[in-house]
Write a protein that binds this DNA or RNA. Sequence first.
DNA 1: CCCTCATATGACCACCCGGTCATACCTACG
DNA 2: CGTAGGTATGACCGGGTGGTCATATGAGGG
Lengths: 197, 197
Amino acid sequence: MPKQTFFNLEAEKRQAIIDAAVREFAEHPFEQASLTKIVENCGIAKGSMYQYFDDKLDLYMYIVDLAYEQKKAYVSRAFSLEGDIFQILNEYYRLSYEFALDHPLLHQVANKFWDSRSAALSAELEKGRLSRARDFAQVLHEAMEEGIVNSDLDPEAVFFVYHAVGKELIDHFHQGCDDRLLQQILDVLKYGLAARN
Amino acid sequence: MPKQTFFNLEAEKRQAIIDAAVREFAEHPFEQASLTKIVENCGIAKGSMYQYFDDKLDLYMYIVDLAYEQKKAYVSRAFSLEGDIFQILNEYYRLSYEFALDHPLLHQVANKFWDSRSAALSAELEKGRLSRARDFAQVLHEAMEEGIVNSDLDPEAVFFVYHAVGKELIDHFHQGCDDRLLQQILDVLKYGLAARN
DNA sequence: CCCTCATATGACCACCCGGTCATACCTACG
DNA sequence: CGTAGGTATGACCGGGTGGTCATATGAGGG
């Protein structure tokens, strides 16, 4: 968490720091991102950064949280949608895509976070995965009870598949992902490969 | 490609270099792997490394290729299997898992390769993806013609899904992956979420 | 024996990193 | 005016990096 000093800053300066950090963390994973470049790009002294944040990790997690807060503002609408699980998933990925288009840098920050292999970040990663799993399990359970989703399937395995495909999808958003392909991919998951009768 | 000098080395010394490099690249992605540590761990001088390889990238690609050659020796059997596409996929991931158990370090090297974000590696990454896509498209096409696989699906989308799930699966092999979960995941892909009648 | 040529070496280079700290600055209050 | 406390600063630290190069070694052939 940033120190109080950071929040005492004039909004303009604070934003300059955030912007520079977002740009750096959008381009490089945590370990390869350079604090030195961030301070150069926002025109403050290296030492000042340590008046605002404990260390590089503190700054990073602040920026990642910020990116996820903004993403949540887009994506959470999907879960309050009236409709079956397939419509919800549809909307979820459509909104994720919209977020990626509107905030490409924040999107990349949030995205690169999942590639982190640092021991210091593994706990945060697991926390994020669990929170996603809970949201998904809820929706899936209802759909199985309603008979919309094949209840022979293992919910854990279903989440595994959606998590994997979701990650890869979101990875590919930056190269543009037409609605058609997105639809086709969700159809593959919906109908499965095996021919029906 | 390594220089001729490298192949003139006594087998034992050559292997020591390979082993040290494999260990380093199994633990760290290309950008964070340290040449200095590699030469320390195999007991040769830093300068000698540059008698054998052009630079760090040259060494890295040699090691990655080597890992993939070994992996192919395991995995290629799946494609010559008599049986439908589902049996082939089954065998493919089972063999991948076996490889990960038998050669955990090579497995990690091959695996981490896909996380590379360096511009210098993106061409190699795309080449690898295309080669996988071709193998897969072949099997998929046949299965669709035989009516085993739902031919309404977009082959590109099917590959996307399998590529994504395959990557995530293989990522998780190092935490042990019981056969049951693997089977369940493949079932999710096979039958799809939507209830059948 | 000497000359040649491939190979081995590690000190060294320039550069980068995250983080620190003595110092200076600035404002507000007494 | 003086002092106190929050803030800004950038030179500096120790340590790391990939890569180079003058020099040494060693084997083979004339």
